[in-house]
Amino acid sequence: MQPINLTSALAAGKDLVAKVQTASGVDVKACYQCGKCSAGCPVAFAMDYTPRQVMRMLQLGLAEETIKSRAIWLCAQCETCSARCPRSLEPAKVMEALRIEAKRAGFEADDEIATFNEKFLRSVASNGRVFEAGLIVGYNMATVQPLKDAGVAPSMLAKGKLKLFPSKIRGRDVINRMFTKAEKMEADNK
């Protein structure tokens, strides 16, 4: 294992850590590494770094490694960590901020989740609402697993739980503009 040069790591990660702190409202220095977040995290078992380790990496300036991690994509935003943190920090907000930064930097370590989110939002942007059938088909095609969940589709249709056509709202042009404006405003802010 290569030693980490902390002097250069801290300097290199400074800007990104500052961005994450501002966006999340969490002072990562305040974390005392107790691990209660990771102990209660329902997805920690599948993560490459536990939420505590993500906080630690930010403390040491290893910000780029965090935005390349799978952990930030696996986070289910269940907020268990935030609810139990003895320092009232909110690791879930840090995960959220890291994910946004990762997307901005073009790192999407977990293609499946990133793709799912993207398809979800694309559906909202074009219809104003989520078109679940379209979402599932689009997602499964994009992740090259066309038959996944295919078994349930017919019975969903039969139960009236999936619609063949999207429900479109009248104000979808507004929604579309909202996406553009929000993207621009966040980009301008950084």
Partner: peptide
């Protein structure tokens, strides 16, 4: 080394969930 996040009963046992923060793994 780690703070326990949850203790809950399971049968006549108590399940204790923590992270071994030196190892970086939930226990």
């Amino acid at each position: 080394r780690g703070r326990v996040s949850k203790v809950y009963p399971k049968g006549d046992k108590l399940v204790v969930r923590g992270e071994d923060s030196l190892l970086g793994r939930p226990v």
